[in-house]
Write a protein that binds this DNA or RNA. Structure first.
Lengths: 131, 131
DNA sequence: CCTATTTCCTACTGTGTCAATAGGTTTTTG
DNA sequence: CAAAAACCTATTGACACAGTAGGAAATAGG
């Protein structure tokens, strides 16, 4: 289940794309338009800056803006940054985890296939597809 | 993310299918084979009985068994029972929930499409496919 | 009838994440 | 210098997850 973090973050990205006029867009405007608490968005947006998805500028006239064109972002990369991982099952989420039942597990192949389908969908979907 | 409840429950179903000899299979045997705490499985299995997925018999010689042939179960129905709902986003999980942004939400169509893909995969997958 | 086996039932608990809220500091422009 | 904005740290209440614990009721075999 995708949490509000991922969902709100995606909406911020869409808002930034739709209201892009070359300059920085203040978070207050985004929060108002999207009807989301500005304080909560700060946490999310901070993560997006750290992850290199967007850039921020302090001070008057500051705000946030995209660093790439909307068609260069995939929904998958946005969600992965905010959700940590988009994995359907815990066994696949941590690549270093070596499950003792890996060899004989009857469900693992299915989870892998399922994960592939999810991954393919989300990484083929572009931010520009949502405008 | 599918929790242990759903994953363990699915493995119980597979175990019941694989070890079906007409009579009831004690939970202890399943727990031993699957290397899962019997106590924890009790909770999961209880839910599966209540949901009509399997039936249980108390007393000596008792245990659990499937009520249908493995090819008659879908992975989707098993997971839905145990996880409550298999929905990628909260807005779609509760059918009665009327989101105020429903009309103008740019992400809703994508979530619906995504949910459809997930749903299709899990409900087309049969328990018998995992044996 | 007794006993071993098994499900069935209620309750509890520690840990962690989610979804915010609160209050302040720093940066920048007009 | 003042307003506006990002930036930063901390806290909180609620809830779900992943079990654990202990016993009651049911049932079959001897």
């Amino acid at each position: 289940m995708i949490s509000t973090k991922g969902r709100y973050g995606l909406r911020v990205m869409i808002d930034l794309a739709q209201n892009d006029n070359g300059s920085y867009i203040p978070l207050k405007d985004i929060a108002d338009r999207q009807e989301i608490s500005k304080k909560y968005l700060e946490i999310i947006v901070k993560q997006m800056v750290e992850g290199g998805l967007i850039k921020g500028l302090s001070g008057k006239g500051g705000g946030y803006k995209l660093v790439k064109k909307p068609e260069k972002y995939t929904v998958g990369e946005i969600l992965t940054l905010l959700e940590g991982t988009i994995c359907s099952v815990a066994c696949l989420a941590d690549k270093n985890y070596d499950c003792p039942r890996r060899k004989k597990c009857e469900t693992l192949p299915m989870w892998k296939e399922f994960d592939g389908i999810v991954h393919d969908y989300l990484y083929s979907k572009k931010l520009s597809d949502l405008l």
